[in-house]
């Protein structure tokens, strides 16, 4: 019953948003940019930063899980590679955050490529186990390769990013604006990928791999592409994380739990969607905070919610199918309009 009602509301809601998308995005964008001036507490700002960070991590995994349908339980590994690469380059070699972050993302993408090359021929479950192992191996390397990673002591005094001499911190809003920027760029990139040949191809592979093959799609190549893009985004998020954690990262910041947390964001929010990543992240980050009064029980409730979710809404909270018509490329729309005109003239 409830499902029906929400469906009825969805079409007008979507067409409303679509109709006013320019003023709405200006409004929401202006509000989001203005948030640091609203006098929120440090804790609130920190929470907000984490929400956007996990939305970005969710979008990274979403490319793999939501588009091409491969489950990864080792994304904390890519997260760690991005963070450590960037942290080592900025502390030991004096690189700026910006170049360090790009390098971190690229190294994560490269490792993703090397990992994907042999493993993506494996089907679903086996791949998942490999990624699980990958996450643990990364953790082991971080703990044991002391000359580079400083082992369990972690890396200290990671400098904060600087932009034309202005130091970005949590209290001056810099951290917030930076992740707002990074997650927005990521969201736009995911959107354009999804609505291009590559994105369609990935979703086709998820929907029916044999049929995709018979359309001439080189499925392994596209799975590797998804793995690389996913690792790149996750590595970039890792580089960001390395600077906001009071200038300090250690292997414990990248344990298995974080892989699960990223996975939960994607599943709760709605696999394959971008809006769902923001929502899933907000829900997951805020839940333990809001329900603090439940003490130890909050995680029981949290687990229960996840189970209920899987049972009754497996597509995720915001995982609805769009009711809007297919968005035609601009030039195609123009050509169709001209055709229509020619027809009426005749």
């Amino acid at each position: 019953m409830k499902e029906k009602k929400s469906l009825n509301l969805l079409a007008p809601f979507e067409s409303f948003v679509d109709k006013f998308k320019v003023p709405l995005s200006i409004l929401v964008g202006a509000f989001l940019i203005a948030v640091p001036f609203l006098g929120a507490s440090r804790v609130a700002m920190r929470n907000l930063v984490m929400i956007f960070l996990y939305a970005m991590l969710g979008m990274g995994l979403n490319v793999l899980l939501g588009y091409v349908g491969q489950v990864s339980l080792g994304h904390a590994g890519f997260y760690a590679i991005g963070a450590y690469t960037s942290a080592i380059l900025t502390t030991t070699y004096g690189w700026s955050f910006w170049t360090g972050a790009i390098a971190g993302a690229c190294v994560a993408a490269l490792i993703g490529f090397l990992l994907g090359l042999p493993t993506l021929r494996l089907s679903g479950t086996y791949l998942t186990i490999v990624t699980l192992g990958f996450g643990e191996i990364v953790l082991m390397v971080l703990r044991q390769w002391e000359s580079v990673t400083n082992g369990n002591y972690g890396i200290r005094s990671i400098p904060v990013p600087e932009l034309f001499g202005w130091e970005l911190t949590l209290s001056n809003g810099g951290f917030y604006w930076l992740i707002l920027f990074l997650s927005t760029v990521t969201a736009i990139a995911c959107y354009t990928i999804k609505n291009s040949n590559a994105g369609r191809t990935l979703i086709a592979i998820k929907e029916d791999e044999l049929a995709a093959t018979m359309m001439g799609i080189k499925t392994t190549r596209y799975k590797i592409l998804a793995f690389v893009v996913s690792a790149f985004i996750t590595g970039l998020a890792g580089a960001y994380y390395s600077v906001i954690n009071n200038g300090y990262i250690e292997p414990n910041n990248f344990v298995f739990n974080y892989s699960i947390q990223i996975l939960s964001v994607v599943i709760v929010g709605g696999m394959g969607t971008i809006r769902g990543m923001y929502f899933g992240s907000a829900l997951l980050m805020m839940f333990p905070q809001v329900f603090r009064f439940l003490n130890q029980w909050r995680f029981v409730i949290y687990g229960l919610l996840l189970v209920l979710m899987m049972q009754f809404r497996p597509q995720g909270a915001l995982g609805w199918q769009s009711t809007l018509p297919y968005k035609l490329p601009r030039r195609a729309k123009k050509a169709l309009a001209e055709r229509e005109k020619a027809k009426t003239v005749q």
């Binding site: 040949n197 929907e207 029916d208 359309m215």
Partner: peptide, 22 residues
Amino acid sequence: RLFGKMRVIENVLVGTHIRTKY
């Protein structure tokens, strides 16, 4: 063996994949 969660036009666009140069 259609791509069920894709739109009709997207299904056909996947067919053009092999001739897509970009």
